[in-house]
């Protein structure tokens, strides 16, 4: 018996059936593909969706979860269209990355590890991006922005359509509680 979380109703689970059908007959080898399909459709691997995936495929949900947490490509929480990674490595740190981070946090209105309510940006920090010669560095999707100032960093985000903090209209949909 699984915990029915209150958010379950806010997901349209119908597409899961199509995804499972497209992999029939479903076997363990289809787990990665099905998770990719789910992530493409829903943006991230929400718990009620993966529960449904497990139920319909007949495979244990723990197997899906294990795979989902093994690969970096999968997101268990709502994820933005763009991933912003601010380096907090030593070289960047001494050259001002905390200030960059402050500016980005203020601009997007979210903390490290979170996603903007409009799902446009997710913010992460990384230990070292391997481009210390550009420090301080910020990586947006696959583009590096180096030798940054806080203002420049904000500008990059503005150009990508960031709304002012607090302007977000879409409400953040069910983040499943994860006690661990």
């Amino acid at each position: 018996m699984q915990n029915d979380s209150a958010v379950e109703s806010s997901f349209d689970l119908a597409p899961v059936a199509e995804i499972v059908a497209s992999h029939a007959p479903f076997s363990e080898g289809d787990i990665i593909g099905a998770l990719q399909d789910v992530q493409d459709r829903y943006g991230y691997l929400a718990r009620p969706v993966v529960d449904e995936l497990a139920r319909l495929s007949g495979l244990p949900v723990a197997k899906f979860y294990g795979v989902a947490t093994f690969y970096a490509q999968f997101h268990l929480k709502p994820h933005g269209k763009h991933t912003v990674r601010v380096c907090r490595g030593t070289a960047c740190h001494v050259r001002g990355s905390p200030k960059i981070m402050d500016a980005v946090v203020r601009r997007l209105g979210i903390e490290d590890g979170a996603t903007t309510p409009d799902r446009l940006f997710s913010l992460e920090t990384v230990a070292c991006l391997g481009t210390c010669f550009l420090s301080p560095v910020m990586l947006v999707d696959s583009r590096y922005f180096g030798n940054l100032t806080p203002d420049q960093a904000v500008k990059v985000l503005d150009n990508m359509g960031a709304k002012r903090a607090g302007q977000g209209t879409t409400h953040q949909e069910g983040t499943p509680t994860c006690p661990s």
Partner: peptide, 21 residues
């Protein structure tokens, strides 16, 4: 199949799916 490894490397731990009790 209630248990799985959650994540890998240093952060790896034993967990249920989505950490449910």
């Amino acid at each position: 199949c209630a248990l799985t490894f959650d994540s890998r490397g240093i952060g790896a731990r034993i967990n249920t799916a989505y950490g449910r009790p």
